[in-house]
Design a protein around this nucleic acid. Structure first.
Lengths: 323, 323
DNA sequence: TCAAAAGTGTTATCCTTACACCCATGT
DNA sequence: ACATGGGTGTAAGGATAACACTTTTGA
């Protein structure tokens, strides 16, 4: 017990930042703002103020002021507070940054001055595997392997190789979509991502495979959001927070594929969704979209009453056995 | 855009609090501290300081100072910051509270002055269903049903009933272990839990079914931790962070049962664990524990290299279908 | 000999995945 | 006619969950 310690409380600024996500069959997008011309874009955000009753209320008021977007589902993601990484210019003051994920139904133009919608894979090219592994990612992976090989001791090298396997699936087979943050952190540590080099001039390097950077740690928050969303669609029917009131099976599938960054098997996807009772038919059909007209669907909210965790298949014993 | 708004930044205190969890076959427990005699217990915690490089580092230093416990796995849970709920005495200053979950292997006595281990179901009696639904919970559920019926409009009543179904499984059938926080929040809103009545004298009410309260919002943080842990054991092998180096199948099973608050089927549990390659035999057997001696097991870390998400069975198409 | 715990075998069932195939519409 | 998307059937394989049963120890 070091009683001699200074115990100097930090003066903190708390910033509330929102990943506002929308999705169309073409792909998901995020609402970004750009404060000055040449600077990288960022997320809508603002400091916590005294008259905000709750953190979420504060976030909502900031977002609605900055983007005039009404938010639907909102959830907290994570609180970042590393002393070194938050400040862009090298300021020593501590900046806590609380990230939120918000889902909105329509990506309405909303390009009010500085705010604009951007496909989120511009910032994360390596996360989009809908058309297989992007070839541009080869370079990334090569650099990662080099980075792992260049570690100090054998123990550290092994650790890094394991991480490459667990995140990018390099040594192993599997690509786990959810691990977006882990992959971004790895690229950050390996110095591959632009944000890692603070002093470097913006736009100095090829933004191809590394993705477009964002201000301060906003890309890290976006990575958290994508990962959370990818994980959550599997056990909660939140995709429907992103869908219009009526949609077809394929539109739903394309939206999910966009979020997860992978392709799905069409017939099975239909049945999965239908069997779970997630949707019901509206009775109408689309004004044809290329082929045979499709039946229109809507979300069936009663599913929440019937199966409390739609999509979840976890070790749930039907009856408890005493032994 | 209200430009006339005050934009007065809040002066915030950031408190780092840790749920330090251990588990034995008898059940899980949490490390608590008690500052003054009559006051309810709380979690080890302390303010964020300027010399803490990261939030997690700050937490670790506080905990090790207060409890002389070394922490293993640590993860951030959630940041609470409601203006009204944080302050116990009614202080208006904003207190942010960042909750963490830490797992330790042995619940060593460690009763250093104020710190002591407590079974976590003392604070959450309704969460322990290992011996079926506790009868004391009947009273809780009755009060919840009353609360739902006493809502203003029909719409609100319906909403409340739905929540009772989704959390306590009242109207419906299912009890979802993970939803610990949702259940606690419901009890809080219904005024059933002691923390909801701030001004009430401590110990004034029967702590039977309502569980033992904690200071400020620490019980909320504990609820978050339990929920997180219950969710995570299903797709990550973190139970082993809580197990001793060698253990038997039954010890592992009892530990998991304690965490999840439900009983499991023994033969199937063995096979599940064995088939997944989560453990390997040490070659030794126990100094008998009541019956036939059991083979000792240890965690098999290679499982992380082989199957990146042990326990996870989610819609993972083995190959991408083009259509 | 019995209680208590350790183990093994087996089966019915469900879910997932993959494959094959037909239907309806526009160009 | 053919391309595009809509939509159905079904069978193989794997994972679950339940049941029945044998084995090994200590008291």
């Amino acid at each position: 017990m070091k009683q001699t310690k200074s115990h100097r409380r930090d003066t903190v600024t708390v910033e509330l930042s929102a990943v506002i996500a929308a999705a169309s069959p073409a792909g998901p997008s995020v609402l970004t703002v750009r404060h000055s011309g040449g600077a990288p874009s960022g997320l809508p955000s603002g400091p916590l103020e005294a008259d905000h009753r709750t953190l979420e209320a504060g976030l909502r008021s900031w977002v609605e002021e900055q983007t005039s977007q009404r938010l639907g589902h909102v959830e907290q993601l994570y609180t970042f507070g590393d002393r070194d990484r938050a400040a862009a210019g090298g300021l020593a003051a501590r900046a806590l940054s609380i990230g939120y994920l918000a889902l909105v139904r329509e990506a309405r133009p909303a390009d009010s001055a500085a705010a604009s919608w951007q496909g989120w894979y511009r910032h994360f090219p390596w996360e989009d595997r809908r058309d297989g592994r992007p070839t541009a990612v080869d370079r990334l992976e090569r650099r990662l392997v080099e980075w792992a090989a260049g570690a100090a001791g054998e123990a550290e090298r092994r650790l890094r190789r394991d991480r490459l396997g667990a995140t990018f699936g390099i040594g192993t087979d599997g690509w786990i979509e959810d691990r977006v943050l882990e992959r971004y952190e790895l690229l950050y540590e390996a110095g591959i991502v632009a944000e890692a080099a603070r002093g470097a001039p913006a736009g100095a390097r090829d933004p191809g495979a590394e993705g477009e950077p964002m201000v301060t740690d906003h890309r890290r928050i976006l990575a958290t959001a994508i990962g959370r969303l990818r994980g959550k669609i599997k056990y909660r029917p939140i995709v429907f927070e992103l869908m219009p009131p009526a949609f077809t099976f394929l539109q739903l599938q394309r939206t999910v594929e966009g979020l997860a960054g992978v392709r799905l098997h069409k017939p099975n996807f239909r049945r999965l969704v239908a069997q779970q009772g997630l949707v019901e038919e509206t009775g109408e059909v689309t004004p044809e979209t290329g082929g045979r007209p499709a039946r229109l669907l809507r979300f069936r909210p009663d599913v929440l009453r019937e199966r409390p965790a739609p999509g979840l298949r976890l070790p749930r014993p039907r009856a408890a056995a005493p032994d």
